[in-house]
């Protein structure tokens, strides 16, 4: 079960975790820069070369800030909440194959593991809102829970088409299935669109960031958080974004596949960066819907659409593969 041959993959744990967290740190700066550029303003450009050390400066600020525990809240949950979100998101990276060899655990339930971990992340948000004992935090937590539970359904159903085409929950098999023939974003275009929408809602990023909508809920479920606990929630959000983009690349854009003049891991990185930039563009371009609009979009449009997609894909698989 824990053989010596697995040692190499366990040695990967630390680099992957550090790499992902570093990526999140860079992404904080990169997102602000890109938003500044798209919205015709400067963005952070003071610290370091083109402001590239801004995130580091923010980190130092967060670390030295007063880490305040609300005396009226539930202490244990309050401390546990950011830990749960971050841990769940980092744990999901365990099954992400960057290349066929660069993967910590090769599993035939990899995709289900991803879904399980994103389901666990809900607890962090929910407990954060509950333990703060603050009405805005509570409302934010409630919104987050309802939104994430709802969109988890579509997140899971939208990838079933890909699973059917590949006949496996293993992410490596799914990528290998795209080697001969189209990458899945062509036969599974509907699945891709729904996955992107559901992923946005799941990571509660800007078009769907109703759990923390500043203009109505101050900062939603993390209103009471300060210092590095807030930093951890923030980091988890960016880790979730990176995770989502990795999953999109693996499921729909052929993972590490690409012409052989670049090594596989570079192809993977390039694709992930492109998808991340697309998500930042979405944030810059689309205004926030109302909460009831978000929920009715989910249940009234996305649910029938995903089910139709599954039906059509199933029929196609039956017709072509007998």
């Amino acid at each position: 079960m824990f053989g010596i041959e697995d040692f190499w993959s366990y040695a990967l744990i630390l680099p992957v975790a550090l790499g992902v967290l570093l990526g999140a740190l860079v992404l904080v700066w990169w997102e602000r820069r890109l938003l500044g550029w798209w919205q015709d303003r400067l963005g952070p450009n003071r610290v370091g070369w083109f402001g590239s050390l801004q995130a580091l400066a923010d980190l130092i600020k967060l670390l030295t800030k007063d880490d305040w525990l609300p005396p009226f809240g539930d202490r244990v949950f309050f401390i546990l909440a950011p830990v749960i979100v971050t841990a769940a998101m980092l744990l999901a990276f365990v099954v992400v194959p960057f290349t066929p060899v660069l993967v910590i655990v090769e599993s035939n339930i990899a995709l289900l593991w991803f879904l399980a971990m994103s389901a666990m992340a809900v607890y962090g948000v929910l407990l954060g809102g509950l333990s703060s004992n603050n009405k805005y935090a509570l409302l934010g937590g409630l919104r987050a829970a309802a939104q994430m539970v709802t969109y988890e359904v579509f997140l899971a159903l939208s990838i079933l088409g890909v699973v059917m085409l590949s006949g496996s929950f293993s992410l490596i098999d799914i990528v290998e299935n795209q080697r001969d023939g189209f990458w899945h974003f062509i036969p599974q275009a509907v699945g891709l669109v729904i996955f992107v929408i559901a992923g946005l809602a799941e990571t509660h990023r800007l078009p769907f960031d109703l759990p923390e909508a500043e203009h109505e809920l101050t900062a939603g479920f993390h209103t009471e958080y300060s210092g590095m606990k807030f930093g951890l929630i923030m980091a988890a959000e960016y880790v979730a974004l990176i995770l989502l983009c990795c999953l999109i690349v693996i499921l729909f854009f052929g993972g590490w596949l690409g012409p052989s003049f670049l090594p596989p891991v570079v192809w993977f990185g390039v694709k992930v960066v492109i998808v991340i930039n697309f998500f930042i563009l979405l944030r810059a371009a689309i205004p926030r819907p109302r909460y009831d609009q978000l929920m009715s979009l989910g249940w009234k449009i996305l649910l029938p659409l995903t089910l139709l997609n599954i039906l059509a894909t199933g029929a196609w698989v039956l017709a072509t593969q007998g």
Partner: peptide, 23 residues
């Protein structure tokens, strides 16, 4: 498979709804 579904369905959906109601 059963392990993953146990987390997704029971821990991830059903108890979340309980906690939701408690909130």
């Amino acid at each position: 498979f059963a392990a993953a579904l146990q987390i997704v369905v029971y821990a991830g959906a059903i108890v979340v709804l309980f906690l939701f109601v408690v909130m």
